[in-house]
């Protein structure tokens, strides 16, 4: 059984249909990439899965439970974390306060400090800067904070929206290495990326989103060699 199953999802912005009935599934332990051009509906899809947007039709099933109508703030506690596009860290709070907010739904202080230790191990720079105001971090550090903050909820699945956006090629590689480590640690990953090359290189499977429809799907290793994908998204 899939950990996350999206069935026949439709989303409207007013009269405009942004998502036109897509279905996909993410199995436990997989890294799934959702690739597509700007405006294809990738971010909308993630926002709908985590409840920030209500779909007009369709179903979202997480861990066997229908979460379509569940408000966003209740979904995190069920084990789904979302690293939003543009990172959206709390700029005026310190690094540590941001991380603590990531664990907002958790109660057990010992488990929280164990996770914090794990996050610091994965991102040593966050520990060095734990008392620094988050708005003063560099773009790469802010991305790490956003990922660390999501990990603080101890999620079973983590949704990442354009983690490479605005970062230098070197940092992009570093971020993707971290995603790989997160996945190897047992967390399922749903990754939305414009950088199709990078996304396909670490994903198990991928879906190609084109103006609100899934136009193609399959194993990442197949898609990376697919003629139409290469032409449209890999610039080859």
């Amino acid at each position: 059984m899939a950990l996350l199953e999206v069935k026949d999802l439709e989303v409207h912005y007013g009269v405009i249909k942004a998502i036109k009935g897509i279905s996909f599934e993410v199995n436990q332990g997989e890294v799934i990439a959702l690739i597509g051009a700007n405006g294809a509906g990738k971010t909308t899809t993630l926002h709908t899965v985590t409840g920030l947007i209500q779909p007009s039709h369709g179903q979202i099933i997480f861990d066997g439970k229908d979460i379509t109508k569940i408000p966003a703030h209740k979904i995190v506690g069920m084990g789904m974390a979302h690293v939003p596009e543009g990172r959206r860290i709390f700029q005026q709070l310190t690094v540590l306060e941001n991380l603590k907010l990531g664990a907002y739904t958790r109660k057990d202080k010992n488990l929280i400090s164990a996770t914090l230790k794990m996050v610091y191990e994965r991102f040593p720079r966050l520990e060095e800067r734990k008392n620094q105001v988050a708005g003063t971090l560099s773009g790469g550090e802010q991305q790490m904070l956003a990922m660390g903050r999501a990990l603080m909820s101890n999620p079973r699945i983590i949704l990442m929206d354009e983690p490479s956006m605005g970062l230098s090629p070197l940092l992009v590689s570093e971020i993707f290495d971290i995603i790989k480590v997160i996945s190897e640690g047992g967390t399922t990953v749903l990754l939305v990326e414009q950088n199709a090359q990078k996304a396909l290189s670490i994903a198990d499977r991928a879906y190609v989103l084109e103006t609100g429809n899934i136009s193609l799907s399959g194993k990442a290793s197949d898609l990376i060699n697919d003629e139409s994908v290469r032409k449209a998204y890999l610039g080859a």
């Binding site: 703030h73 959206r88 709390f90 907002y104």
Partner: peptide, 20 residues
């Protein structure tokens, strides 16, 4: 801390599990 979060970014606060 939830108030700080909502004040700065309502959507991100929801993603943390804060009831806005």
């Amino acid at each position: 801390r939830a108030m700080h979060a909502v004040s700065e970014d309502r959507g991100a606060a929801q993603l943390m599990g804060v009831n806005v």
